[in-house]
């Protein structure tokens, strides 16, 4: 029996072939995947294993991730970590539109910048962006933490209803139904824990925190029909 392969070149493969090769090669060691930029939906729905993607990756990297650890040395396309439920995805470069949308859990760390609509409908994941982010970050945020070390665009935390957003830089405008809160000692401890765990260089004390104004932003007052 040959030793478990630790490197995989997916240059000429389509998604099905690459996915089969990845499943075959998954062992106790970290699997290195090269030339994966043309594949969209790579490492989808994995429950175990550690994967290092050398270079850039395409769209939908680590979609439905349920326990795998995925590291990318380059940049990623759109929707990295889409609908993740467990596990960890670390992107050394930057991410495009919609990074970490619909996640239920796990952690997504982007060391570069991230695009618009990052962490939309986050239902419990921890999402950390070390650079700047675009507009409409954490729209309809339902639970979990979003940490932005750099600056954000307009409508930061639009219509969030639970969870917390932390921002180190500035944002152009605050979303509807958000409130700026004083950062507490527990928040600072939590941020320091994240920074230590994910190796982020930032000063936790200078962060600002946004929480939801109300958990029922759409809840209308019920008025009886006239009588």
């Amino acid at each position: 029996m040959l030793a478990v392969a630790t490197a995989l070149d997916v240059k000429d493969m389509d998604l099905r072939a690459a996915s089969a090769a990845i499943k075959e090669s998954t062992g106790s060691e970290t699997l290195e995947i090269r030339n994966a930029a043309h594949l969209h939906g790579l490492c989808a729905g994995l429950k175990t294993g550690e994967y290092d993607i050398i270079g850039d990756a395409g769209d939908y990297l680590g979609v439905l991730n349920d326990g795998a650890t995925i590291r990318v040395t380059g940049n990623v396309g759109q929707y990295v970590g889409d609908n993740m439920t467990r596990g960890l995805i670390v992107v050394e470069g930057s991410a495009a539109y919609g990074a970490g949308v619909y996640p239920y859990g796990g952690a997504l760390v982007i060391r570069g910048n991230a695009g618009d609509f990052t962490a939309t409908m986050n239902k419990g994941a921890t999402i950390i962006v070390c650079g700047d982010v675009g507009d409409e970050i954490a729209t309809y945020h339902l639970a979990g933490d979003v940490v932005v070390v750099g600056n954000a665009g307009v409508n930061f935390g639009n219509y969030m209803i639970r969870g917390a957003l932390y921002i180190g830089g500035e944002f152009k405008s605050q979303g509807h139904n958000t409130r700026i809160e004083e950062i507490t000692i527990e928040d600072v401890q939590k941020l320091r824990r994240y920074f230590e765990q994910f190796d982020v260089q930032a000063d936790a004390t200078r962060f600002r925190k946004l929480i939801a104004e109300t958990a029922k932003p759409f809840y209308g007052k019920i008025v009886k029909r006239h009588e």
Partner: peptide, 11 residues
């Protein structure tokens, strides 16, 4: 994954 009593409006 929404708070009880809060409208669940899908995008």
């Amino acid at each position: 994954g929404v708070p009880p009593g809060s409208d669940a409006l899908s995008p």
